[in-house]
Design a protein around this nucleic acid. Structure first.
Lengths: 206, 206, 206, 206
DNA sequence: TATGAATGAGATTTCATTCAT
DNA sequence: TATGAATGAAATCTCATTCAT
């Protein structure tokens, strides 16, 4: 799956990678602070450490930066999740581990997630589906685990129930970041995780 | 709790109410379509049915429109919730009724909620807390019901658990709107509601 | 000499006089504070004690207010000068008295004079000459006194010298107001007057 | 003493100098014609020979143009005065030469001086004192010459008398420009200069 | 490849003036 | 006569994007 649609005048793929990394890093912190629309391309270039002219050697238009940022965040979250999850292993313990890890990632990347969360709607009509697809893939990871559990007889859930619970897990992870103003006053990440897991399990194991 | 901080040059309070209603109505549909930042003040004026000059007779700056919109949406949701909820009545049936009604409201107002959801962060530093407070009040309505249930002996939940569950209910209501691209393909509102209630209940009644 | 060119919809001449007085009074203090261009018609109406609609019953356009203000100031200065000057009486004592009185008027009306001084250029091409003519008339009052003195044999001055000295006197009166930031730190009005009179009567090489 | 407070996005100092020169030149002729407030930023840009966007690369806000113009005019007048004045040389001849030169400069730069004269009050509260200070410095040049003359025994004047006369000289120079509608009908520059010098040196009662 | 000066479309906001009540 | 809501032209300023160096 390659970054689609983002044109670069520069040929050197390695350099593109480097420059875009600089760009994304700068942009995330700017978007976090003031949002996509209030951030100017000049500011992005400056934060990235190069000139406005150079910025446009590596993107076609401002929106591309947002796409790159969203794309990167998903890749990172995805990769970190896959790293310690085995969707085949269908036992409750694995499920809980996956949830814990996911919540931890969400906690560590909450700035990025918040950015993506709030700015994704500014993506163009073409880019949005691509990003949503990535999100769905992550939900499907949880669904796969749940399915494996069911198949293993750990508990019993119909397909739609599984899907919904997968969504719930996914959203509860995001919640921790985007409702931090309310939640993080009440709980530590650990408490939050345990409580949500408990809600989930006692629900499932009827 | 009245609309604060939004100045109007016009004196006739009645007229202000009317014009602002027109304004909000037009703005919601524009914001829904293209977001706050991509919507121009001229478009808002036009959608409201008056001239740009008139628009500025009823607000001080563009952001005020967003504030007015958010404020209105919360008021409407709030009011509809309060209409059929009695937070004192502590039985499970009332709780479920409240949830069902809330989800229904979220379904009917999903455009508005989506708008608020995505654009609230564009509010000024002064206005944001005011809006967040309103959100918290709605969460607290669910918490109050849960508390009444616990006191009635319907089930047993510590304070923090109650709070968290209230947040979950609230977010699940929003989810239906802001994740419609995924959820509404899978479930009808009724199915979604029933499923979430089931998740909740079998969780609570351990 | 009637106020020319300033149209009023209202017929009652008495009322016009009253309203315009209110208008001028409010406008002078506003112009003094923020200048003609930065003062809005709404502010003028408010300061005058009536509505914007009423304002336009008594003038045709914003600039008319400035004209009215300038006109009024000149009339007032003129009248106060004429009150205690007899241009026929050609003795040095009368000249000095005239100068002293003029400087005193300039001191008392320095706000008004400053306003006129700085804003007159904003008058329309048609109104400006009318105002300049009034100014010239005042200069001519001094010239007349000087002429009478010369005819009386008090001292000897050719026409052009008389004219120039009349201008000097006139400008020195204004100076006291428009260079107050510098002059009024150094002298009292009396000192200033005496010094300028001395300069006039006896040159450096005494 | 360098141009303070006027921000430029462009880095090349040389270029800033060039562009601002173009800007000032265009602005002076526009301000002369219609005043600061009636001149639009687009007109300034056009008169300067570049686009509105470029204009704002070299200033922060419209008022900066006025500041730049005033600053420039003072610098130019100042420099031309200093060029042929030696404030140490305390003889009457030097004084007269200084006055003559000053009046000549005022004559040649009368458009600029008129502009500054009429528009300075539109400067911001921060910029105005800076400009007034420059004006005072010029007055002080004349005072210095007068002082040197007194110390040389050419004539006798107390400090305050010297200060006042310095102001008079300064204002009489400006008069030539800002009252041109009256004065220049009556005298040539030379006649005006000679007459004022005579007034200065010998009073009315010779 | 990198730079940054130049551009101008377009956004927000103001405010003189009108006119129905 | 008095009012003040409505209007929209016009002003300032921003900023994504281009392109010559």
């Amino acid at each position: 799956m390659k970054k689609q649609n983002v044109p670069a005048s520069v040929k050197d793929e390695k350099l593109i990678e480097i420059r875009r990394n600089q760009m994304i890093k700068g942009a995330v912190s700017l978007f976090k602070e003031k949002g996509f629309h209030r951030t100017t391309t000049r500011e992005i270039a400056k934060a990235a450490g190069f000139s406005i002219g150079t910025l446009y050697e590596y993107i076609g238009k401002k929106e591309d930066v947002l796409y790159l940022v969203c794309d990167r965040i998903y890749d990172e979250v995805s990769e970190r999740l896959k790293r310690d999850i085995d969707p085949k292993k269908g036992d409750t313990k694995s499920l809980l581990l996956a949830i814990k890890n996911y919540f931890k990632v969400m906690d560590e990347m909450q700035d990025e997630v918040l950015v993506m969360y709030q700015e994704a709607k500014s993506l163009s009509k073409e880019d949005l589906p691509y990003v949503l697809k990535k999100e769905l893939e992550m939900v499907e990871m949880f669904e796969a685990i749940l399915k494996a559990c069911v198949e293993n007889g750990e508990f019993d859930l119909h397909e739609n129930e599984r899907k919904l619970i997968a969504h719930n897990i996914f959203v509860q992870g995001q919640m921790w970041g985007f409702r931090r103003w309310a939640l993080q006053k009440l709980y530590s990440l650990e408490e939050y995780t345990n409580s949500q897991i408990e809600n989930l399990l006692t629900g499932i194991n009827r």
